[in-house]
Simulated assay, not measured.
Amino acid sequence: MTLYDFAKGLFRLQFHLMGWKIHDVENLPLEGPVILAINHVSLWDPIVAACSLPRHVSFMAKDELFAIPVMGWIFSKLGAFPVKRGQGDMNAIRQSLALLKEGQVLGLFPEGTRSKTGEVQKGLPGMVLLMEKSKASVVPIKVLGTRRLLRKGWGKIAVVVGQPLTAQMLKAPEGIQNRREWIADRIMQAVLELPEAK
């Protein structure tokens, strides 16, 4: 058993006890490259999202997390890898494309940072570059109830999985000046439009 599977089993037990719900997980393709576009309000988001899905998810995470003693090692063992925010990190891009070329699942938080208000923010266009280069579909995912999870998350944790979006479905109209930004906006709109609860 891998560390990923062991940790996933432990957290799934915890979340089940907290009333965790997963909606429309059948929307996630069971094979082939997939990019997850996930809203971000808490450090718990990647854990809750990964535990909700049947496939192994490799997350791109801010490089500051990998500088934390022991934690950085754990993140790496779980398949996460660092990205330097605020700049074009070619190493992170190459690693992302390599994962997708192998038909794996890449987890992204396109907002670039946690939302202080809980509202879905503008998405960064880097995910569009990865989608175009890899030909992977993008699956919008909304994570709910993770803010102050250990105090207020009981009975409120949920994950909603949206329909896959392809580059063909997200073609920008002619005359759009920043095509990737326009597509990123459409992806984040798809995250926003996922239901809050069912």
Rank of each mutant, 00 (worst) to 15 (best):
D5R: 12
D5Y: 05
F6Y: 09
A7Q: 04
K8H: 02
G9T: 03
L10W: 07
F11T: 05
Q14F: 09
K21E: 10
K21A: 06
E26F: 03
L30S: 14
I38D: 09
L43T: 11
D45F: 04
A50C: 07
C51N: 08
L53Y: 07
V57R: 09
D63T: 10
D63M: 08
I68D: 09
G72N: 09
G72C: 08
W73A: 15
W73D: 15
I74R: 08
G79W: 07
P82G: 04
Q87P: 00
Q87M: 04
A92L: 10
I93Q: 00
K101V: 01
K101H: 07
L106V: 11
L108W: 10
G112S: 02
G112W: 03
R114P: 11
K116A: 15
K116E: 14
E119H: 14
V120I: 06
L124R: 10
M127V: 05
L129W: 01
L130Y: 11
M131A: 10
E132K: 11
S134C: 09
S134Y: 03
K142S: 03
R147G: 14
R148P: 14
R151S: 14
W154T: 06
W154G: 12
A158H: 02
L165A: 02
A167T: 03
M169Q: 14
A172D: 15
G175A: 15
E181Q: 08
W182L: 02
M188N: 03
P195E: 12
K198W: 13
